[in-house]
């Protein structure tokens, strides 16, 4: 494609970006690292504590429970959203007036502020007066998301599926649109079945797009905060307290700077590690 010339003066072009991002990333990160290895008794009195906070967090059952909840949530949500998104993309019209309508309507959940998403589902799920809550109870399902952990989980998952599946749909749709007609024509001529077309043409050609979709969904669902806290508040009890909710509770609620900082770093590292693993596994084939 374009061969790049070596030019170190290009740093001037990149400088503003580096300044702005580093300001927001490096300084806070340094703060976090700083706190994670110190203990404070308030008013700028700090004692170096080494890895004490890290040990405490890594041994704390509360941390592990939150972590497990996050992992479980992410796993369920990925398992639903990716196949569903792909299925919808496959069945959407490729040409004609309905295409724009479909895309616009499907994109709507993506542009709603996350707290409003949470509020919407909260209102929707209210057992007596919410559309979902009332209907479920009316047909005999005992549903109350403020009191039953299972209902709370179901609501949380339904909300995330409602909120984010469209992202997978849009990405998958873009990937599918890029497949030239000739492939479908050749498959027709070869007598391939619908399933064979999917398996040998569509899926391989969507691989890059799907990698991005899965990676984005993994990262974002693992980091979820605002929607979750607005809809269930982490409850009932702490049954839906995922990692980020717990972290904010500890940091801003309890103002335990040390443990909060240590937890933050562990959290960040977990994401980096898992993302890297995902990415490597999914792009493995491209190396050949």
């Amino acid at each position: 494609m374009n061969t790049k010339t070596v030019n170190h003066k290009a740093w001037w072009l990149v400088a503003p970006v580096v300044v702005l991002v580093a300001f927001n990333a490096v300084i806070p990160l340094m703060t976090v690292v700083n706190y994670s290895v110190q203990e404070t008794f308030g008013e700028n009195v700090f004692f170096f504590e080494g890895v004490k906070w890290f040990e405490q967090i890594l041994r704390s059952p509360r941390f592990h429970e939150s972590l497990q909840r996050s992992l479980l949530f992410t796993a369920i949500v990925l398992a639903i959203e990716v196949p569903l998104g792909v299925a919808i993309a496959l069945t959407m019209p490729r040409k004609g007036p309905w295409v724009s309508v479909c895309l616009v309507l499907m994109a709507m959940p993506l542009l709603i502020p996350w707290n409003v998403v949470g509020a919407m589902w909260n209102i929707l799920a209210l057992p007596d007066i919410g559309l979902l809550g009332h209907t479920l109870n009316a047909i005999g399902i005992d549903y109350n998301f403020t009191r039953q952990p299972l209902s709370a989980w179901a609501t949380l998952i339904a909300m995330d599926v409602w909120h984010w599946t469209s992202l997978v749909v849009l990405l998958a749709y873009a990937g599918l649109s890029a497949i030239p007609d000739a492939y479908y024509q050749a498959a027709k001529i070869d007598g391939a079945s619908r399933w064979a077309v999917f398996r040998y043409i569509q899926l391989p050609k969507m691989k890059r797009v799907l990698t991005i979709a899965i990676l984005l969904r993994f990262m974002d669902s693992f980091m979820i905060y605002t929607e979750a806290i607005v809809v269930t508040g982490g409850g009932p009890g702490n049954s839906t307290t995922v990692l980020s909710i717990d972290l904010v509770k500890v940091a801003l609620g309890q103002f335990d700077l040390g443990p909060a900082a240590a937890m933050s770093l562990i959290y960040f590292l977990i994401i980096l590690l898992l993302s890297w693993i995902f990415y490597t596994v999914m792009t493995k084939d491209e190396q050949s």
């Binding site: 980020s244 940091a251 801003l252 960040f268 994401i271």
Partner: peptide
């Protein structure tokens, strides 16, 4: 995660 950056 934004949660990590809230306090800092």
């Amino acid at each position: 995660p934004p949660a990590v950056f809230a306090l800092p």
